[in-house]
Amino acid sequence: MRFAPALLAAGMANEQFGKFGVWQPHLLVTPEAVRELEELGYGAVWLGTSPPADWDGYDALFADSQSIIIGTSIVNVWATPAKASADLFHRLESKYPGRFLLGIGAGHREHNDGYTKPYDALVNYLDELDEAGVPTNGRALAALGPKVAKLARDRTAGALPYLATPAHTADLRALFGPDTLLAPEQKVVLEEDPQQARTIARERAAFYLNLANYVNNLRRYGFDDQDLTYPGSDRVIDAIAPHGTPDQIADALTAHLTAGADHVAIQILGGDYVPALRTLAPYLAARTS
C-alpha cells in the first residue's frame, strides 16, 4: 500500500513522494522504523532537530529501505557550512538517487549565536549550494513568512513550513502557484480526552511560543497575546497540535491537503510514534484512495 502520490513538478521521485510522511527528531529515527513506515505507505521521513551534515546515521536509514524519501528538516545554516551540506547531498544522491531532499533553514535568533540578517544568510547559502552543484530540485527551505516563501519558490524545490495551520498552507499555495512543493509539518496527539491531549501537546509544543518567528506567524492567523503567551491557550494548542480519534486526526491532516499541500509531515506527540502511525495508516489511505 502506498498513499496516493503528490505530483510534484520539482523533479524529486514523484512516484515515491506520497501525500503523508513522518517528522521526527533525527536521533529517534531508526532503520527499523523507516522500513516499517515505508511498508505502511508513508512516502517520506523528515529528520528534525537540525541534523548535522556529518551525522553518521544517514546511510543506515537508506540502506534498510527501498524507496522512501529521506529529507532534513532542517539543516541549520548557522551550524552547518554550505560545503558540508553540498557534500552530503552529492554523496547520498550518488548512492541513493532521487531519495534525498536537503531541507535547510535559518533556525532561531533565540538559539543561534551570530544570528543576524537570516534572509541574507539563506541567500548566501543557496548561492554556495549553486556553486557546489546542488540542483534546485534537490533542496527546500523552511519557510513561514512571504519573503522566505518567495525565496523557496524561486530558488528551491519548495517549502517545509513548521508549526503552521491549514490557513497558512492555503496562503503559501496561492503564493506558489501549482508547481512548487509545499510540505508542512503537523503535530498531532492521538488521544480523545481533551485535557490529557493538551497536556501532552504543551509538553512538546508550548516551547515554540518562546520563539519569535513562530509567534509572529501565528499572529498573522488571528492568534493574539492571550493565545500566544506561554504555555498557550487551549485554542492555539488545539490548532498547532490537533487531538482526537484516528478519524479526527486524519481529518486534521487532510485539511492541509485540501488547503493546497502536496504532502504533510506528521509529528506524533506522546508515546512511541511508530504504533501511532501504524494506527493512522488505514485512515489516511482511505482519504487518498
Rank of each mutant, 00 (worst) to 15 (best):
Q186D: 07
N213Q: 14
V188S: 09
E203V: 11
A197D: 13
F223D: 00
D225C: 10
A212C: 09
L228Q: 02
E192L: 01
G177E: 04
F207R: 11
R204E: 12
L175M: 06
E203D: 13
E203K: 15
D193P: 08
R204K: 11
Q196S: 08
P178C: 04
E185S: 15
L172I: 09
G177A: 05
R235V: 00
Y208W: 07
P184Q: 12
K187F: 15
A212L: 07
P178A: 05
L181Y: 13
K187S: 14
Y214F: 11
L175E: 08
R219F: 07
G232C: 02
T229N: 09
D238K: 05
A212K: 15
A206L: 11
N216K: 10
Q195E: 10
F207Q: 04
R235Q: 01
I200A: 01
Y208S: 02
A212P: 15
D225E: 13
N216T: 13
E203I: 12
R204G: 10
Q196T: 09
A212V: 09
T229Y: 06
Q195G: 14
K187I: 13
D227I: 01
P194K: 02
A201P: 01
S233T: 04
A212N: 14
Q186A: 10
N217W: 15
A201H: 10
A174T: 13
P194R: 03
N217G: 07
R173K: 06
A197L: 05
Y221W: 04
L209Y: 09
A197M: 08
I237Q: 00
R219H: 06
F223E: 02
D234M: 01
K187Y: 15
Y221G: 00
F176S: 02
L182C: 11
Q186S: 06
N210R: 13
T180W: 03
A206S: 13
Y214N: 12
P231M: 08
A205F: 03
R202F: 15
I240D: 02
Q226E: 03
A201Y: 15
E192H: 01
